[in-house]
Simulated scan of single mutants.
Amino acid sequence: MGLHRAIIFLRVILCIGASLSQSVVTLDCEDVVTGILNEDTKLTCSIKSTIVKKYDLINLSKIENKKPTSVFSLEAGAKQPRNNRIKIIRPDSDDVSLLIQKTELTDEGNYQYDLETRAGYDSKIIRLKVKAPYSLPKVTLHSNTMGAINLSCETTGYPQAQIHWFVNGNLTSESNSSSNKTPAGLMITSILQINNSQITSEDNYTCAVWSLDKNVYEIQGQLWGKFIALILQIISTNIF
Rank of each mutant, 00 (worst) to 15 (best):
M1V: 07
R5F: 08
I7F: 12
I8F: 10
F9Q: 12
L10S: 14
L10M: 13
V12A: 11
L14I: 13
S19E: 07
L20T: 05
T26S: 10
L27F: 02
T34K: 13
L37M: 10
E39D: 14
T41V: 15
T44V: 11
C45N: 06
K48T: 04
T50Y: 02
I58T: 04
N59P: 00
I63L: 06
S73N: 03
K79R: 10
R82L: 14
I88S: 03
R90D: 11
R90L: 09
S93G: 09
S97K: 07
S97W: 02
I100A: 01
Q101P: 02
T106A: 12
T106Q: 08
D122Q: 06
K129I: 06
A132D: 05
L141M: 15
H142V: 10
T145I: 10
G147W: 11
S152K: 14
Q162M: 12
H164M: 08
H164P: 01
G169R: 07
E174T: 13
T182Q: 07
I188R: 03
I191W: 02
T200N: 11
N204I: 11
N204C: 05
W210A: 01
K214T: 02
K214V: 00
G221T: 08
A229S: 12
I231G: 01
L232F: 03
T237W: 06
I239V: 13
F240T: 13
